[in-house]
């Protein structure tokens, strides 16, 4: 089991950040992701494995500053 923004999702071997975002329903173009507090670059989403028990944060970035 992992948590994505506090929501529980099932875990499987080989789970990547891309898988997690797809399964959680995140398809935002402008998103920042950390896994267990470590930043994951977008280019690495497809290769970055998410370990069992991971705390994933996915932040949708908004215009305005």
């Amino acid at each position: 089991m992992i948590e994505v923004n506090g929501r529980k999702l099932s875990w499987r071997r080989g789970l990547t950040v891309s898988d997690v975002l797809a399964e959680a329903g995140y398809d935002f173009a402008h998103i920042t992701v950390t896994v267990n507090g470590v930043f994951v670059a977008p280019d690495d989403f497809g290769a970055a494995n998410v370990p069992d028990g991971a705390d994933v944060k996915a932040i949708h970035l908004h215009h305005g500053g």
């Binding site: 173009a29 402008h30 920042t32 930043f39 670059a41 977008p42 970035l61 908004h62 500053g65």
Partner: peptide
Amino acid sequence: FDQADAKKWLIE
């Protein structure tokens, strides 16, 4: 920054 895409690459 103002724009979300720029925020994204700045953070990265």
